[in-house]
Design a protein around this nucleic acid. Structure first.
Length: 256
DNA sequence: ATGGTGGCGCGGCCA
C-alpha cells in the first residue's frame, strides 16, 4: 500500500510539531506540503530526516512555498511550469519508484476580476499544458495540493453564498474540469463520503465549529492510478488542534 | 457589514 497525502500547513515553522505528529500517526509514503512560507535554508530538514523522511523543497520567504516529504528518494524534480517565468514557489514535481507526484499551490485569485484572478487563470492554463506532458510521460501520476477551487456545489457549505465568487467561479471550475478531462480522477469522489466534507475553513467567524468550509484540497490520480486507489479522505483531526492550519490534510491510498 | 483571524515581521500584504 502506498499512501499519498497533501496538507497546506500555513507555515512549516509554526506547524512542524503537528506535521511530525501526523507523520508518526498516519505514516504516509509521501506528504506534500503547501504554504511552507520558508526559504530552503530555513526548512526544518534535520527534524524531518530524524523522523525518517526525505524533504524536497521549493520555498521562499513569507509567502507560498511547497515541499514533498517522502520515505524514498526523489528523482526528476521540477520546480516550475514550463513557459511560466514565475518567482512564486508553487510547483514541485518528483518521481518516487515510478510514481510521478506533482505538489501544487494553485494561486488563490483574491477576487473575481482582480489582477491576481487573471494570474490564477493564466497559471491554470500553463498547468493544464504541463499536465498533458506529464501524462504522456508517466502512467501513474498523482497531482495533489491546495487547488483553491471547489470542484462542485457539494464541495461548498453554502453554494448560493459562494456562487460566482473566487474559489467557485465558472472559469476556475472549468479549468479544473479541463484537468480532469486530460485523464485524471478526483479520488475523493471515487468513494462514498460524508455530506458536507470540506478541507478548508476560514480562521474567522468560527467557521470550523460551524463547518462553514470548502473542499479545495484535492488528490487527483491518472486513470491507471485511479484504478488502484483504495481509499480517499479528509482528516479533519489536525484542524481541531490548538493553533491549527486553516486546512486539513487529505489522504489517498493506492494498491502499489 | 469591506469586518472577522492568522502568519510574517514589525507596516501592510496575503489568504
Amino acid at each position: 500500500m502506498t499512501r499519498i497525502a497533501s496538507w497546506n500547513v500555513n507555515s512549516i515553522k509554526v506547524r512542524l510539531p503537528q506535521v511530525l505528529e501526523w507523520l508518526e500517526a498516519d505514516s504516509p509514503d509521501v506528504l506534500c506540503l503547501q504554504e511552507t512560507k520558508a526559504p530552503d535554508d530555513r526548512f526544518p530538514m534535520r527534524e524531518l530526516e530524524a523522523a525518517g523522511y526525505h524533504a524536497t523543497v521549493s520555498g521562499q520567504k513569507t509567502y507560498n512555498g511547497v515541499a514533498i516529504l517522502s520515505k524514498t528518494e526523489p528523482s526528476d524534480e521540477i520546480r516550475d511550469l514550463p513557459g511560466l517565468d514565475d518567482p512564486q514557489r508553487r510547483v514541485l514535481g518528483a518521481t518516487f519508484d515510478g510514481l510521478r507526484v506533482l505538489d501544487l499551490y494553485v494561486p488563490n485569485g483574491q477576487a473575481v476580476g482582480s489582477d491576481k484572478y487573471a494570474y490564477k487563470l493564466d497559471w491554470l492554463e500553463h498547468l493544464i499544458d504541463h499536465l498533458s506532458v506529464e501524462l504522456a510521460a508517466h502512467e501513474h501520476v498523482v497531482v495533489v495540493g491546495d487547488f483553491n477551487i471547489a470542484p462542485e456545489d457539494r464541495d461548498v457549505h453554502d453554494p448560493e453564498e459562494w456562487r460566482g465568487e473566487v474559489l467557485c467561479s465558472e472559469p476556475e471550475r472549468s479549468a479544473l474540469q479541463s484537468i480532469l478531462a486530460l485523464g485524471f480522477e478526483d479520488t475523493f469522489r471515487l468513494f462514498d463520503q460524508p455530506e458536507q466534507s470540506f478541507s478548508w475553513w476560514d480562521y474567522r467567524m468560527n467557521s470550523f465549529k460551524r463547518n462553514r468550509g470548502l473542499r479545495i484540497d484535492l488528490v487527483l490520480a491518472s486513470s491507471a492510478l485511479a484504478r488502484r486507489c483504495t481509499a480517499s479522505r479528509v482528516d479533519a483531526g489536525p484542524r481541531r488542534l490548538e493553533r491549527p492550519s486553516d486546512h486539513a490534510p487529505v489522504v489517498a491510498d493506492f494498491n502499489l
